[in-house]
Design a protein around this nucleic acid. Structure first.
Length: 219
DNA sequence: TTCCTGGCGC
DNA sequence: GCGCCTGGAA
């Protein structure tokens, strides 16, 4: 029985890094906050903002709804884009109360495609953020595509790195079982591998566990 | 395409 | 100093 390329890459990364058990958050709502704050932002800066929010008990839907906009901006400033992100956090929270009584689990419990469309309709929630929320806050099997995914699988020549988001997401979801634990671990491993080894500049190909599978490393 | 933003590594 | 960071909107 021949293992598919995607499963082979997953097994190699899992063997190398071990299970990573994302997302680093205490509650599903905190995942939503992190997913918005990390847009085009290094996670180290997001952590500073989360610490500020925790310091002010600002990690719940009730707290975000009640917080004055300016105060919220101050708390999340270290994450950058603080005006946009403060608006996005509060728009999400307002929607949560308006449509789901402030209950995130309820919001994320419906049919996957419908919940995804609902998320995408919100200002500031694009496909990557929507899939991150579905997967890591909702435990739903929606594969997350990010810049790292494009870079790694583009270099492996398993897909076109410039293809549209939905195309790449479908590539993975058509070839893997709809298993949220698998998607969770796979995306985490991709991020870890790309941060440490498959970097944009000066990738560490000699140390890579995918070396023999990678045209980029050879060429 | 450009704008939005701060922190960090090099 | 410059480029990058788990993007998205206009």
């Amino acid at each position: 029985m021949k293992t598919s390329s995607l499963e082979q890459v997953f097994e190699r990364l899992l063997d190398h890094f071990g299970p990573l058990h994302w997302w680093p958050a205490d509650t599903p709502f905190e995942v939503v906050i992190g997913a918005i704050l990390t847009q085009n932002t290094a996670w180290t800066n997001v952590e500073k903002a989360i610490v500020n929010l925790r310091l002010h008990d600002g990690l719940t839907p009730d707290a975000l709804r009640a917080a004055p906009r300016k105060r919220l901006e101050d708390w999340i400033r270290p994450a950058g884009f603080f005006r946009q992100k403060a608006e996005r956090l509060q728009l999400f929270t307002e929607h949560l109360f308006a449509r789901h009584g402030g209950d995130l689990r309820r919001m994320l419990a419906g049919p996957l495609a419908e919940v995804r469309e609902e998320l995408l309709a919100l200002k500031g929630i694009g496909p990557e953020t929507a899939d991150s929320i579905l997967l890591y806050a909702g435990g739903r099997p929606s594969f997350v595509v990010d810049a790292y995914t494009r870079r790694l699988f583009g270099r492996l020549q398993l897909l076109d790195a410039d293809a549209p988001y939905e195309h790449i997401r479908a590539f993975f979801m058509d070839r893997l079982p709809a298993d949220s634990d698998l998607f969770n671990e796979y995306h985490a491993l991709i991020v870890e591998h790309c941060k440490r080894l498959c970097r944009k500049q000066r990738p560490l190909c000699p140390e890579c566990c995918l070396l023999d599978l990678c045209p980029f490393a050879k060429g």
